[in-house]
C-alpha cells in the first residue's frame, strides 16, 4: 500500500528536529551547532526547514524534500533503474547502480535530486523516505522526530482525507490546495499551507498528468519506426537502383538482386 507523509506548515515550529533525525538515519554528516542552516537542499541534506515572512499571515516554517511521486519522473528517466519506486511509496536510490548521468536532476520537475560534486565517487542525494526504516516497521526519521506532528507518516489515502478535512474545516487557516494531490499525477508526500505554495517557491506550474507519459508517447512508437522505416528504405533503394540500371542498359545482366526477376 502506498504510504507517505503529510506536512502541515501551520504546525511546523521550525525546530529542525526532522533535519537532524534525517541526517542521523541516513548517515549524512551532522554540522556543528553554529553552522547556519542551509537554505536549499544539497548533497548533505535530504530535507531542509525554511522560513518565510508573509505580509498577511506572518512568519511561518515549511519543509522541502522529495515528493515521492507516484509515477516518478526521476524513476522513468533513469536508464539503469538506480531510482526505483517501491510498492510502499518510497522512491529509493541505489548508488551502486547509478552511473552519474544526472538526467534525474535535469528531469525532476520539483528540482529535488542534488549531487555530491566535490568527490570523485559522487552520488545523487535525495530523500528516500527512510525505506530501510520502513522495512523494519519504523516510521521515516522526520515523522518520528517531529515534536508537533507537523510531519505525519501514514497511508496516502488516510493522509489525503486528513488533509482535506483540515483544509475544509479551517478555510481561513489554509489555502485550498493540497500540494501533491494532483501535481505530476499525484505524489505520496502531501503538503498543506497557510500561504499559496508558489510564494514558497513550490512548483505549482507542474502539470497534473504524470510527466513520463510525455516521453513514453514517443518512445512507444520506436518498433513501428524500425519496421516501417526498414521497408521504406529498402523499397526506395529498390526502385531507384532499378531505374539507374535501366538507364545504363544493364537489364539483361540478371546478376544483381534488383533485376533478378
Amino acid at each position: 500500500m502506498r504510504k507517505g507523509l503529510l506536512i502541515d506548515f501551520t504546525r511546523c515550529i521550525g525546530c529542525g528536529a526532522c533535519m537532524r533525525g534525517c541526517r542521523e538515519a541516513n548517515g549524512l554528516p551532522q554540522p556543528g551547532p553554529d553552522v547556519p542552516r542551509p537554505d536549499e537542499l544539497d548533497g548533505d541534506n535530504y530535507t531542509v526547514v525554511l522560513q518565510h515572512e508573509d505580509e498577511e499571515k506572518g512568519g511561518l516554517f515549511y519543509r522541502r524534500l522529495c515528493m515521492h511521486c507516484e509515477d516518478a519522473t526521476c524513476v522513468s528517466v533513469c536508464a539503469v533503474h538506480a531510482l526505483r519506486k517501491r510498492p510502499d511509496g518510497a522512491v529509493m536510490y541505489d548508488a551502486g547502480r547509478c552511473f552519474g548521468c544526472r538526467y534525474c536532476m535535469t528531469a525532476c520537475p520539483f528540482h529535488i535530486p542534488k549531487y555530491t560534486w566535490d568527490t570523485n565517487v559522487p552520488v545523487v542525494s535525495k530523500c528516500i523516505l527512510c525505506w530501510p526504516r520502513l522495512d523494519k516497521g519504523q516510521e521515516p526519521a522526520c515523522a518520528a522526530t517531529c515534536p508537533t506532528g507537523a510531519t505525519r507518516f501514514g497511508a496516502r489515502e488516510v493522509l489525503l482525507k486528513v488533509a482535506r478535512e483540515r483544509v475544509h474545516a479551517q478555510p481561513e487557516r489554509y489555502v485550498n490546495h493540497i500540494f501533491g494531490e494532483k501535481e505530476a499525477g499525484g505524489t505520496d508526500v502531501l503538503m498543506i499551507s497557510p500561504v499559496p505554495f508558489e510564494k514558497l517557491g513550490f512548483q505549482t506550474e507542474v502539470p497534473t498528468r504524470p510527466l513520463p507519459e510525455l516521453t513514453w508517447m514517443v518512445q512507444e512508437k520506436i518498433p513501428y519506426v524500425i519496421v516501417t522505416g526498414g521497408f521504406f528504405l529498402w523499397g526506395l533503394r529498390w526502385i531507384i537502383n532499378r531505374r539507374i540500371e535501366l538507364a545504363h542498359g544493364e537489364t539483361g545482366a540478371g546478376g544483381s538482386q534488383e533485376v533478378s526477376r
Binding site: S76, V77, C78, A79, V80, H81, A82, R97, C98, F99, G100, C101, R102, Y103, Y115, V121, P122, V123, P212, T215, W216, V218, Q219
Partner: peptide
C-alpha cells in the same frame, strides 16, 4: 559521475528511459 559504471546501461534496462 561514475564512468566506470557505464556498462550498467547494458544490463539494467529501463525501456521507459529515453537515455
Amino acid at each position: 559521475g561514475k564512468p566506470w559504471n557505464i556498462w550498467h546501461a547494458m544490463f539494467w534496462i529501463n525501456h521507459h528511459s529515453v537515455m
